[in-house]
């Protein structure tokens, strides 16, 4: 899909072009960071540690899947409400199942419906009323945060069912917990959706040139609404998994996913202008982000220093990815 890859004349150029691919950059950085982590604190790159890291990355990665879709759809697509939906899904799921395995299926149903519903409202606001996505989802975030206060006052916080917790933290198949398999499945599904279906082609077409896509007779509005609904659903699924990970939900657990989900997408090589990129890179971006945070917690510096290093490193990392072109006359 990327049109800016110049035809390379020599093998050296080809190699350079390969090394400039966001996914390749992210993978190299991941290996590099793992090595640094292992050097800083032996045992950091042990299989058990990596597995724990992947679980945390999967939670972020699932939220980022929806974020990625909305961003790909263009027209400054962005979803700031994902954090609120994650929190809402976590508390709803906790109440529906309330520690019983029998409640898992109804909880999934409730979460998916609620996520899709808020996504639908976002999508309708953005398409029919033509509210800029940033404004619409920012407003929705405020509504969701208010709703969380109401719910928290009305019902107890609820508990995760043992089955859900096992799904997230216990080995399920080949030593990997269910959530990793779920994430891989989502990765495959996203790749299939974006590269092999009409819907996927529409997303790229709308993201790169909405006017042209509209002229070509594509259902621009329906597609964009669907993207926002998918974003809500992915956030809701992540919220449920987060409940399984932490056992019970607490105030605004989801807030920590709002902006990092966008960062994961950008680090994965999808620019915020849309129409370019894909989910494989985002998955690597999520791992990279979690890895970086994890390294900083193993180093013995205080919270303040950790945040400063994290912020500075993020800026440095972004320098590898899609900087805007210099202005030319």
């Amino acid at each position: 899909m990327s049109t800016d890859a110049l035809p390379s004349r020599s093998a050296g150029n080809a190699a350079l072009a390969f090394l400039k691919k966001p996914l390749v950059v992210a993978l190299i950085l991941i290996v590099l960071l793992l090595a640094v982590g292992e050097w800083l604190s032996p045992g950091f790159a042990s299989p058990g540690q990596i597995l724990r890291l992947l679980i945390v990355a999967a939670l972020l990665g699932i939220v980022a899947a929806g974020q990625n879709l909305v961003i790909l759809g263009g027209r400054e697509g962005i979803d700031l409400s994902v954090g609120g939906i994650v929190s809402l899904a976590a508390i709803l799921a906790g109440n529906v199942m309330n520690g019983a395995d029998g409640g898992i299926l109804p909880a999934i149903l409730v979460c998916v419906i609620v996520g899709a519903l808020f996504g639908l409202i976002n999508g309708v606001g953005v398409t029919l009323l033509r509210i800029p996505p940033l404004v619409m989802t920012l407003g929705m975030l405020g509504v969701l945060q208010g709703l969380l206060v109401v719910i928290r006052n009305g019902i107890p916080s609820g508990r995760a069912a043992p089955g859900l917790s096992d799904f997230v933290v216990q080995p399920f198949l080949l030593g990997l917990p269910g959530i990793i398999w779920l994430w891989l499945l989502i990765g495959l599904a996203m790749a299939f959706l974006l590269r092999r279906t009409v819907f996927g082609y529409r997303v790229y077409a709308i993201g790169s040139n909405e006017q042209a896509a509209f002229m070509a007779g594509m259902p621009v509005k329906t597609t964009r609404v669907a993207l926002f609904m998918l974003s809500g659903v992915f956030a809701a699924i992540a919220g449920m998994c987060l409940l399984g990970y932490s056992g019970s939900s607490f105030a605004n657990v989801g807030e920590q996913y709002m902006l990092p989900s966008i960062i994961a997408v950008v680090l994965g090589g999808t620019p915020l202008s849309g129409g370019k990129g894909g989910y494989t890179g985002t998955m690597a971006g999520a791992v990279l982000l979690v890895l970086l945070q994890s390294i900083l917690t193993t180093v013995h510096i205080d919270e303040a220093g950790r945040q400063m290093v994290f912020g500075a490193t993020l800026v440095a990392l972004m320098l590898f990815y899609g900087r805007a072109k210099a202005m030319r006359g």
Partner: peptide
């Protein structure tokens, strides 16, 4: 100057500034 995307870049600097604030007053 570095031509980064404003939303993500200023989020990164916000983490940095918050770290500084925590250094001044934990």
């Amino acid at each position: 100057g570095l031509r980064l995307q404003a939303i993500v870049a200023t989020f990164a600097t916000s983490i940095f500034f918050t770290g500084l604030a925590l250094t001044v007053l934990p």
